[in-house]
């Protein structure tokens, strides 16, 4: 399973970035091997519609689960029609969040 966490830094020990569209990095983690990839968020820098561009990134990476602080109304509209599970309103380090998700502690 592929999990994406919005992050303030490039490692698994970085803290979650509560913003979705304008987060610093997307960290994409394979939940079995814990191998990961950190992608700088190119849309943090667009004038408007950052959330929409960010969804495009997440979907292109074929992510199953997204863990973030908050998703704006436009991005929500896209996620509602997708198969991606979105978890919001959490905080902590990226690694810890993934572990918690695997144990079924994040809803």
């Amino acid at each position: 399973m592929k999990i994406c966490v919005t992050s303030t830094g490039e490692s698994l020990d970085s803290a979650l970035d509560p913003r979705f569209g304008r987060c610093a990095y997307f960290i994409i983690i394979d939940s079995n091997s814990m191998e990961f990839e950190a992608i700088p968020n190119a849309s943090s820098n667009v004038r408007g519609g950052a959330g929409i561009e960010a969804v495009q990134t997440v979907i292109n990476k074929r992510v199953d689960v997204l863990i973030t602080g908050d998703v704006g109304p436009n991005a929500s509209r896209i996620f509602n029609t997708s198969n991606i599970k979105v978890i919001v309103g959490v905080s902590g380090a990226v690694r810890e969040l993934v572990e918690r998700y695997k144990k079924g502690l994040l809803k």
Partner: peptide, 19 residues
């Protein structure tokens, strides 16, 4: 689209008129 008002994936397309 310079304003990110259109979203396209392999099975859907969404328009955001506000943007």
């Amino acid at each position: 689209c310079e304003y990110n008002a259109i979203f396209v994936s392999k099975d859907k397309i969404l328009i955001f008129p506000e943007l």
